[in-house]
Structures are given as structure tokens and as C-alpha cells.
Design a protein around this nucleic acid. Structure first.
Lengths: 257, 257
DNA sequence: ATGTCTTTGTGAACGCGTGCACAAAGATGG
DNA sequence: CCATCTTTGTGCACGCGTTCACAAAGACAT
């Protein structure tokens, strides 16, 4: 992904590199699966294969956490699960609010992976007064007016933005002002936040465009190696052929129903 | 974000670095917004600010595409929009199939950003026979049995997996066997694919965990600098306190309704 | 035509991340 | 207790990506 890397000179998070942090959840998932199968220990080789990474990388990653392995044997699964959970801050409960209960917001609210790993959906918030009180995933939607009080009363520090792009920055500002210091942004916009606030971005459209790039290259490679699409059309091309949806730039992660 | 970087030694994609490719969609979005406001030209400084990146980085990125700017003036917005679109392969239409029409799959089907930028949802596929024929986002859901014929008949090369984790690899295998060479995976699993197939992964749970890590560090920093949470609890902790949902590891990106 | 001013394009330095390859550590068997 | 064998932990080198800083290029005014 894609991070808003809004502050902090990357590394020096107590020594743990950012790239390593991003892989810890991956290891944790693989370890949890092993734990369920009651596997007592794993070698770096096995675990690396399960997580889809290089074993040397995995060992180096773990070395940042400390020496939790036993040479000649491997890593104790349960112990490692606990250590990584603790390192990631998953031993405590993180109340989370989701703002923008459209299709995506609702999907997120129903997402099982949230609750099962230290995250608790404290509230669902939407600007549409018609949504207020309507339960989604068993939680009644609340109106944006109550955003500040919800944040403060529940001690929420993590917010998820699933609003249309146009509303994202405003929602973000209110979240931050109310005390939120970490934001997961699904709206297709660049959010600007003060120092000390972390933003991570998930953008479906961007992911697809990256795939399209590689796809095009593959196609152009195997077919005409000389590439026939190099014709330099001046401009005017790529006119937004008025689809039902407005110009993409302002389209929400998903339209509020 | 997170890529399956399954093949290819990264760079050398005709010279364009992977990191640059990942930013092109960002620039494109900012440029499209400018285009709509009929702004004729932008400087690297302005555009960089709009896209949330460093201006030197942006200029270097564009330099990989060619010399499309005019010194002393900046970049022609329309021309650049076209060039980037072409580079990303967005001037052609990419038929896409979405497999797994649960909450998330439905949200994706309704996502406006797909259709508006060269991507067309060719079909929605789900394993539940009860879903067959039921329209989602105006498109009737089809049964998994027809997966192969759909792919072939529509010439689909990009597939989106939004199934539970347990089904993801199997779906992936079938997609690849049928001719799909790019996959966007929302299921929390590591997919293994043959060389030549690109996989990109979007994992909501992982993003939140990364945020939690930084959040914890912030909290531990400002409060007790000596960190009081360093108490080394042996193990046994972090018992999956049987939530309604099963163990997260196998939870789908979102449960099929 | 010439000079000034703006902005691009890029050479070079630096830092992070990755992967190799091996020494150190410990288990295990005799 | 010693030898052997497995697997960790890490020093080192390499390459990608980022950033600085500046020369080259062109617009624009005079």
C-alpha cells in the first residue's frame, strides 16, 4: 500500500523499520493459522513460505523484535504470536469509528476481521439524516453532528473514512480536531493532516490502474515487440465519455446508498 | 501498498520504475481535476502539492515518460493527462470480473471509480446458487460454474477476488487457468500464482494493524517514556476470545450475505 | 536580438531495504 | 562429554528510490 507517510522520518520507530512493521501482520496471520492447528514450532523457512516472503528477510524482521527463536529448532508459535501482537499493539482494544456508511462503509462494518483482532467498531457515522438510527451490522448509524462527542466519549483514536472524496478532507479535519490520530482513508483524495497524525490510504482505482499498466506491457511485449501503439495522438483524446457517474475524481469510494 | 510482486525483477518495465508507476494514477487524478477546472498548465511544484508528493520526485517520474514539460512554464494539463493515460493503458477498455459477491464484492460492483476510468465490470460471479440471476449494481450475478466461459468469451485479463480466504486460492487458480493474468486480491491470504501473473493485495485488517502499531508507539512515547508495557508475559495470552466470527485468519474480506 | 527570470530535466550522493552467505548457538544422538 | 547436524542471527554488499542542487532550456520583456 500506499501510505500517507505524513510525518516521522520513516524508520527509528524504536528501531523497527517501516517495511518490517508492514510485514508483521502477515506473519501474525500465518502464525495464527499454525496455532489453530496446534503446531508448536516453525522454522523461518516454513513460516516464510506461508507468509510468502524470503526466509532471510523474515529472520531479519524478527531480529528487530529480539531473539525469540531457538537455533536448531525454530520459533515457538504461541510465544511469537504473543510477541508480535504486543508489538503491534493488538493486546489492547482499539475503538474505531467508520464515517460514511455507503456500500463500502457498510461492508467495512460487517467485516469480521476488524472485531477479531483487537479492533472494535465503536460507531458508524453518516451525514445522511435518513440513515440515523438505521442499524448496519447491528450497530445504529449516528449522524455526523455527534462525531465529536462520539470520539471523545469513546476515546477513539483511529478513524476510517469511507465518504465521497468531496467530504473526506472536512471529515478528516473534524476527526483530527476531536482527537483522532490515525486515519484509514478509502476516499480517493490526498488528505492533509497535521504532524503527528498517521494516514494510510486504500485506493481501489489506483490498484487497478497499476495492474492495467503491467497488463498492457505484457500484451505489448508478446505481440508486436515494436509496439504499434506509440502513435502520438495530440490531445483531446480520453474525453470523459459522460458515464452515469460523475467525473471519477470526485467519486466516493462507494456511493452512499 | 501491498503487492504480490510475484514475478519480474521489479524495474526495467521499459525503464519505468515500479515506484513511479504506482504514483502515476495519483498524478492522473490531480491532473483530471485541473482539467475539469480548465486549467491549461501546471508547474511541477503545484501538481506535486496537489498529489501530495515532492516536486523533484514528480519531475523525475515524468522524466521517465519523456520530456513533456516546457521549461519556464510547466506541463500542459491535457497533454499530460493523455500521456499518462496511455502509459497506464487506460485508453483501452479493460473488462474485469469480480468473484465473490458478498458485502465487499457488492460494494466493488457499485464502485463508480471502476467504470469511469477504462474499467468495465464484465461479470459478477458467486458460488452461492441462490445469488444467481440476482442483479447487483444492475448486473446479474452468475454462478461459479460459468467462470471459465465468462473469462474466455469476454477476453477478461483482470480479475478481482472478494471471496472468503478459504476459497481464494481455488478461485485464483481457475481464473489463471482461464486466462486471467492480473489479480486484485481482497481475501486475506497469500496467493500463489505462476510466473507472468501479477497479484496486488488489499488487506483492510493489515492496514489497521499498521496504524495500531504507530498509535501504540505514540501513546507510549508521550506518556511513560520508560514504557510500562514491557512486562514479558510468557504466553497463553491473546487467546482468541471466541468472537461471533470465526478465527480471523479465515475470515473473508467480507462475508457473503 | 539580448538579457532576465522561471521552471524543467538530471547528475550525483545518500539511505533504506533486500538477499547472500556464514559464523554462532543450541539440540540431539552416541 | 563430544561430535554432528540443524537453524538462527547478522555482517556485508548491492540496488532501488529519494532528494538535493544546478545547469540547460525556453518564455517574455525591452
Amino acid at each position: 500500500m500506499a501510505t500517507g507517510r505524513t510525518h516521522r522520518p520513516a524508520t527509528r520507530s524504536r528501531g523497527i523499520p517501516e517495511a518490517t512493521v508492514a510485514r508483521l501482520p502477515l506473519y501474525l496471520r500465518a502464525l495464527t493459522a499454525l496455532s489453530e492447528r496446534s503446531v508448536p514450532t516453525v522454522s523461518s523457512e516454513e513460516l516464510a513460505a506461508a507468509a510468502g516472503v524470503n526466509s532471510a528477510k523474515l529472520r531479519k524482521d524478527f531480529s528487530y523484535l529480539g531473539s525469540y527463536g531457538t537455533r536448531g529448532v525454530g520459533y515457538d508459535v504461541e510465544y511469537l504470536v504473543y510477541q508480535i501482537s504486543r508489538e503491534l499493539g493488538l493486546t489492547q482494544d482499539w475503538p474505531v469509528v467508520i464515517v460514511g456508511i455507503g456500500n463500502l462503509g457498510a461492508a467495512l462494518a460487517n467485516y469480521g476481521g476488524f472485531a477479531s483482532r483487537g479492533f472494535r467498531v465503536a460507531a458508524l457515522i453518516d451525514a445522511d439524516p435518513g440513515m440515523a438510527g438505521k442499524p448496519v451490522a447491528g450497530i445504529p448509524v449516528q449522524h455526523t453532528d455527534e462525531l465529536e462527542s462520539i470520539i471523545r466519549d469513546n476515546g477513539v483514536s483511529i478513524g476510517v473514512i469511507a465518504t465521497p472524496a468531496g467530504a473526506a478532507q472536512q471529515v478528516c479535519d473534524r476527526l483530527v480536531a476531536a482527537g483522532v490520530t490515525s486515519i484509514l482513508n478509502f476516499a480517493p483524495t490526498v488528505l492533509s493532516v497535521p504532524d503527528g497524525v498517521d494516514v494510510r490510504k486504500v485506493d481501489l482505482s489506483i490498484e487497478l490502474q497499476i495492474l492495467a499498466f503491467h497488463e498492457q506491457r505484457k500484451a505489448g511485449e508478446e505481440a508486436t515487440t515494436g509496439v504499434a501503439a506509440e502513435t502520438a495522438v495530440p490531445a483531446a483524446a480520453r474525453e470523459e465519455s459522460g458515464t452515469d457517474q460523475g467525473p471519477d475524481g470526485d467519486v466516493p469510494a462507494v456511493m452512499p446508498a
